[in-house]
Amino acid sequence: MDNLDSIMNRTDLITLIQKKGQFSFSRSGGPGGQNVNKVNTKVLLTVALDELAGLDESELLMIREKLSSRLNSSGELFIQLQEERSQLMNRERAVEKMADLILESLIVQKKRRKTRPSRGARQKRLDGKKIQGNKKKNRGSISIDD
């Protein structure tokens, strides 16, 4: 996570999400017995991207581009979590996961350079094809002239 921390401080981002984020809770599905029917453990965390201080316009644009599937109609970033049986644990995990998503979306991908196979690699491939072709050619029926 070292390269992520250099872009924006992760701990500051987590505290900012905790302050500015809107939490809503509902009943979760899955295992948990009677706990599932009684306790609202599923967490929905939404954060308005404009309220995240410390991000400039280009960074906000990158986040909106890369996380477009996680934006609602209001342009808020949302995440839903129901992994744990505890509301508090789900809440903490949602905040951490959102911080990680934001930091990962700010990493600029390196451009891919086109490469070609070397002359030796091409020759090796062609030699292999020749050998395979000769094997197949020699598989014909054997004629015995006695």
Score class of each variant (00 low, 15 high):
5 D>C: 07
17 I>V: 09
45 L>F: 05
94 A>D: 07
49 L>D: 12
101 L>M: 15
32 G>Q: 05
108 V>R: 06
123 Q>G: 08
113 R>D: 06
85 R>N: 11
137 K>N: 07
113 R>I: 14
119 R>L: 00
117 P>I: 03
140 G>F: 11
48 A>I: 03
84 E>Q: 09
27 R>F: 09
107 I>N: 03
125 R>Q: 14
97 K>F: 04
139 R>C: 01
105 S>N: 05
27 R>M: 04
40 N>V: 10
54 G>Q: 12
96 E>Y: 04
35 N>Y: 05
30 G>E: 11
35 N>L: 15
114 K>R: 03
145 D>G: 07
4 L>R: 09
68 S>Y: 12
113 R>Y: 11
86 S>A: 05
94 A>V: 09
79 I>H: 04
129 K>I: 04
77 L>N: 10
4 L>H: 08
138 N>F: 02
101 L>A: 12
68 S>A: 10
6 S>I: 15
27 R>E: 01
124 K>P: 02
143 S>K: 13
93 R>T: 09
80 Q>E: 08
18 Q>G: 06
96 E>A: 12
101 L>C: 12
72 N>C: 10
84 E>L: 09
87 Q>V: 08
121 A>G: 03
96 E>Q: 14
50 D>R: 04
43 V>G: 03
13 L>V: 12
50 D>T: 13
73 S>N: 09
44 L>K: 05
17 I>S: 03
85 R>C: 06
133 G>M: 13
97 K>I: 01
116 R>K: 12
114 K>L: 08
84 E>M: 10
119 R>Q: 02
63 I>M: 02
135 K>T: 00
117 P>G: 04
101 L>E: 10
111 K>N: 05
47 V>K: 02
24 S>P: 02
85 R>S: 07
34 Q>W: 03
28 S>A: 15
144 I>V: 15
24 S>G: 01
40 N>F: 05
21 G>H: 06
20 K>D: 01
134 N>M: 13
93 R>W: 05
24 S>R: 09
21 G>F: 00
75 G>W: 09
98 M>A: 06
88 L>S: 08
116 R>M: 10
88 L>P: 03
108 V>E: 02
44 L>S: 06
118 S>F: 00
76 E>D: 15
125 R>S: 09
36 V>W: 01
2 D>C: 08
38 K>T: 14
80 Q>P: 01
26 S>A: 08
